[in-house]
Amino acid sequence: MRLQRRKSDKFACWAFLTPTLIFLAVTALFPLLYSVYLSFFRLKLNMPNQTPTFVGLNNYIKMFSDTMLHTSTVNTLIFAFVSVALEVVLGLMIAMVICSDSMWSRVATSIFMIPMIMAPVAIGTLWRMMMDASTGVLNYFLSFAGVEKIQWLADPFMAKVSVLLVNVWQLTPWVTVICAAGLKALPQDCIQAALVDGATPRQIFWKIVLPLIKPVLVIVVMMRFTDAFKVFDTIYTMTNGGPGTATEMLPNFIYKQGLKYYDAGYAAALAIVFVLTMAFITLFFLKLRKKEEENVW
């Protein structure tokens, strides 16, 4: 009787799961496998009647000599490392300040959420207007402090700084919210014991709070890092990768190969390498988190 019940439960489980599995296979697995397949072929979608030509690993080998890819990779790495570092440091600092259940803290949190909930395209467009060196409000306000006109978007270095600043402005609140939740969940008895023992606030932060919140920070860094690698909309609307190649990032580069030049094979190869890199980065962070959790507990 029990065996029959177990069998029927198993059958019901699979009956419920099957549609989802089929749906995932059709919408996620099949396109992924097809991309892998496509990456070994040369296929220009804008050329009529063209059939895919097998080119082996050529699309992958091409990456080694593609200078534009190298430039966009370096740009993306700089962008990801600097923006994530700034966001985590700033986010944690702000979280420490607003981490309470008081009224002002809730109001401040709500205000901080605004950049996070805005559409990236709107953010890019607004900042592009505000950062215009001649007509933008940013230089206008800076002029009161005697600051000379800054070419936010026309100078290659400043354009890099500008897209970084906008990203930090947009996503530091997200880090703040997560860190604040992590801080609230910290065991208060440790902190109170440290206070009783005469620990200074600095010592409490470095010796208690930071080690305890590390697992949360690892997750925050992982999510922000993988997200930073995928940055597209804001930069597309702010600079479209310019001036020259100053703000050209990997997603914009892959987008151009796939949807502007219609080079499906090369775009697929790039996407596969990109996904694999992201997967390795995620795995690294997950292992790090596990290690940190083991250290904490």
Binding site: D132, A133, S134, Q151, W152, L153, T239, G242
Partner: peptide, 8 residues
């Protein structure tokens, strides 16, 4: 020209 031209 205005140096901002490159972003205009």
């Amino acid at each position: 020209s205005d140096p901002a031209n490159l972003a205009w």
